[in-house]
């Protein structure tokens, strides 16, 4: 029988060192070709590190009101002071802690809900699926910020955790819808059907076969949910719906507004939190360009083909 005898060529190809384009290599290759995700990562890391090491970067308590009010930036106060005599630089650093934590926490909740509510109904099927799809669509058409405002206005004690929870619990619908349709499309693929034939439980099919193929979508969802959460948090706090005594980039803007920073020409009070929010959003978007390339099947396929053998003449 012919299949018993492999040729020298095939043997040679087989015994050649296994060319493993590991996931890490794939990612580093993308970073080499496209600098945008790298820039995003650097910006985000700068913000995260400065927030984490805030006590080392500033000697002042961000809430302390002991300084000259509305002082312009100087050697002692790099970013000047607020109308109540707080140091803006330390507010900026400590505020980043809460703002980033709330953003990532809320983004994580929204994404986790999107994964569960997007994948599970298609697993359970039947009326649960139909009901969930309807519910998701209703959530999609309710405008986000007004809903947040209404909920936060009803909930007392709107600390950062509450705000994160509210944002996370309302921000999952988009992701859920995308992940649901992707789950449905993947569950019709041959490899999923084959795994059912292999005796896999439906739960295992979902988590072991379908979920890995959606990871990049999940990561992209996490990125966007986090951006949305940081913006929503800033908006709510700017509108005074947060706890104004907690220092965040959002409450900084709230106090700057009530303290009439613009009228007083105190640009140093407004620009740092505003710029920080914008830059973090930008950095996450830049990172998403990289995620996009990992998840775009066409880019990925070409890469694999080129790595294997350039079968350019192959019919499409």
């Amino acid at each position: 029988m012919s299949q018993a005898a492999h040729t020298d060529a095939e043997q040679a190809a087989v015994q050649a060192p296994v060319k493993r384009s590991s996931r890490w290599k794939e990612w580093s290759g993308i970073l080499k070709r496209d600098k945008r995700p790298l820039v995003g990562i650097v910006i985000l890391l700068l913000f995260m590190l400065s927030a984490a090491f805030a006590p080392l970067l500033t000697p002042y308590n961000p809430s302390a009101t002991q300084f000259t009010p509305l002082a312009a930036p100087s050697w002692h106060h790099w970013l000047g002071t607020t109308a109540s005599g707080q140091d803006v630089w330390s507010q900026f650093l400590y505020g980043g802690r809460i703002s980033l934590s709330v953003g990532f926490f809320a983004g994580f909740i929204a994404t986790a809900l999107a994964v569960i509510l997007g994948m599970l109904p298609s697993y359970l099927g039947g009326w649960i699926d139909t009901t969930m799809a309807t519910f998701t669509n209703i959530m999609l058409v309710i405008p986000g910020l007004p809903l947040l405002i209404v909920i936060t206005a009803y909930v007392h004690q709107t600390g950062p955790v509450t705000i994160a929870l509210v944002i996370g619990l309302t921000g999952w619908a988009w992701g859920a819808r995308i992940l649901r349709s992707q789950t449905l499309s993947l569950s019709r693929r041959d490899f999923v059907i084959a795994s059912r034939l292999s005796g896999e439980t439906q739960w295992r099919v979902l988590t072991g076969e379908i979920l890995p193929n959606m990871l990049s979508l999940v990561v992209a969802n996490l990125v966007f949910a986090t951006i949305a959460a940081i913006l929503a948090e800033a908006s709510l706090e700017f509108l005074g719906l947060g706890n104004p005594s907690v220092v965040t980039w959002g409450t900084m803007l709230y106090w700057a507004d009530t303290g009439q920073a613009l009228l007083n020409g105190a640009w140093w009070w407004i620009v740092p939190p505003g710029l920080a929010i914008a830059l973090v959003g930008l950095s996450l978007s830049l990172i998403n360009f990289g995620v996009d390339q990992v998840s775009n099947p066409r880019l990925r396929l070409n890469k694999v083909k080129a790595a294997r053998k350039p079968r350019k003449g192959a019919p499409s």
Partner: peptide, 22 residues
């Protein structure tokens, strides 16, 4: 059904779609 699949199996048309890339 799982016991039946010990006895009855299937091979698919497209070998690029029937294996999980992960």
């Amino acid at each position: 059904l799982m016991r039946y699949h010990r006895n009855a199996q299937m091979i698919f048309q497209d070998p690029f779609a029937s294996l999980n890339p992960f």
